[in-house]
Amino acid sequence: MGMPITHIMTSGMSGIRAAGDLVARMEFSKSMRLKPAKEYVAKKLGVSTFDLSDEYVMREVRENLGIGVITSVAGAPKGHAAKMNIEKLLGIKINCCDKFRKQMK
């Protein structure tokens, strides 16, 4: 466990504490390199690329956009609901959200 924790502390983007999941999604969904992926996400969020790993900035941004926050806020979008908001924000499709929509009657 010490190895992944050390990487996250040394170099990571802090996942949903900040915007690490969103930058990772752009690298995966569009094969974007790090710099364009960060620029794309920052533009969509209306923040600077510097802010993407800043928990202070990203906490409020994430809560306002309904894209999931690190703490358990009652009534806030979680799971599929948060990911559907991420789809809209980033202009991408997420596989499990597609599956969820297809199951709706």
Binding site: H7, I8, S11, G12, M13, G20, V23, A24
Partner: peptide, 10 residues
Amino acid sequence: GVETGMEVPV
């Protein structure tokens, strides 16, 4: 730690 702003997804 990496310089602020140089963080990468893991």
